[in-house]
Write a protein that binds this DNA or RNA. Structure first.
Lengths: 233, 233
DNA sequence: CGTTACCTTGAATCTCCTCAATACACGTGG
DNA sequence: CCACGTGTATTGAGGAGATTCAAGGTAACG
């Protein structure tokens, strides 16, 4: 229930600080916005539960999905650092958020180096994930891209404890996937069908099943990152 | 000559810390590697002078250029935070680097909240730049993508004081641009010619000139970010 | 039942890619 | 000084991959 809790145990003083930093909890309906590109908000959130989507809207009307933050992920750091969100965030399911006051960030840096380090670590991790996605979108054909997206998604969901064996439940539509991987909806659909035909992955309704994870990994060129937090000191 | 100097004036104690943190300077030849994907190094750098390129190599042999760090940019943060570089960095010209000891980062977080904040800010900025690039690569056609790349490049060079009026010198080849924007070399070439034919931009040899920056901006959908650092209270 | 959201399909088209060759500039060694 | 190699830019041709348009189909929901 606490900032970054998923990465390491807190020191007692950190724990009490985080509890003070925390303003409360917020429940957001599926489909509503959490942040809007170009705007700002007095808050910083972490996801406690549910599916969210970070995306940018372009002038030509298209949409690029950046990723799908899950439990433990930070939302709105740009808010704090830049005073403006450079992308939007939307709830894809009902989402529970842990709310922090953005002003608290100063004290966090001044008094809790360990937490500040965690924050930097998370920002850098986001960057590296985007880099990987960019490489996939820029350099891989549709089949590989979609395999990458599915594997990546599943991996993150697994870390968040949202999978059961080889299957997971998601609110994602093919359009979400297409917008995330820079494909048109139609082409994503046709390519997904071919992927399903290999028997390596099944996607029916809300349920995605990895029938042959190894093959998918191979296809996607995805190397599972060791996302375990490196302890401070 | 100092970490982040381009963003704000240092406090006296910060200045002395940074000078202690600094190990020395390093000159790297054009064409040589500064970091190699999958490896690590005891150092963290900032670019003092010259052109560099961050890139990932894929299994299919293709290369995705992430960006072209210039003076003031940080290299190797992943080194410190993840113990491994997830991308490579190469010198495109002779490059002068300011070298820091990665262990010093702990003390930085513990003793110099302002500098820690700067570090986080830089990591978050990298993330937002990648997000913008991803949106361009994922959702824009070739002409717009290249316009975006050129404008973006010019803008960063200008901030680094590497432009003269409407022109800049770069060591970049069309292949670099192509790999950065997810295009084949041939297609990038043909599209660049069309761009040049508009008269909005000229690129001859090492020299890029923005003849009509406004038109290019329009075409690329690029909004010049206010990259001025927000002071740490 | 009708509406809505999502998935699926087919057809026509175009963007973009690969292959393959050529051109050009530059530096090097003979 | 010239031949040659190397790296970069340019061209043309042909084809694969992706897009758009336009319809249906299906399941869920009120």
């Amino acid at each position: 229930m606490r900032l970054l809790e998923s990465f390491r145990a807190f020191e007692p003083d950190e724990l009490s600080f985080v509890e003070g930093f925390k303003v409360g909890e917020l429940s957001v309906q599926a489909g509503s916005s959490i942040f809007l590109e170009g705007h700002n908000s007095p808050h910083l959130y972490t996801v406690l539960d549910g599916w969210t989507m970070r995306y940018k809207t372009l002038e030509n009307g298209k949409r690029q999905v950046l990723n799908f933050p899950l439990r433990g992920d930070l939302l709105g750091l740009q808010n704090v650092l830049f005073d403006t969100m450079l992308h939007s965030v939307e709830a894809l399911t009902e989402v529970r958020l842990c709310v922090f006051q953005r002003e608290g960030i100063w004290k966090l840096f001044e008094k809790h180096a360990g937490l500040a380090y965690d924050l930097t670590w998370m920002a850098a991790r986001e960057e590296s994930i985007l880099a990987e996605t960019l490489a996939a979108v820029g350099q891989m054909p549709a089949r590989e891209r979609l395999a990458f997206a599915i594997i990546h998604l599943f991996d993150r969901a697994r870390r968040a404890g949202m999978t059961k064996g080889k299957t997971m439940l998601t609110p994602l539509t093919q359009e979400h996937l297409a917008d995330a991987m820079g494909l048109s909806l139609v082409h994503a659909n046709k390519t997904l069908q071919k992927l399903k035909a290999t028997g390596w992955v099944a996607w029916k309704g809300q349920e995605i099943t990895l029938l042959d994870e190894r093959k998918l990994l191979e296809l996607s060129g995805y190397e599972r990152p060791s996302n375990n937090r490196r302890p401070f000191i």
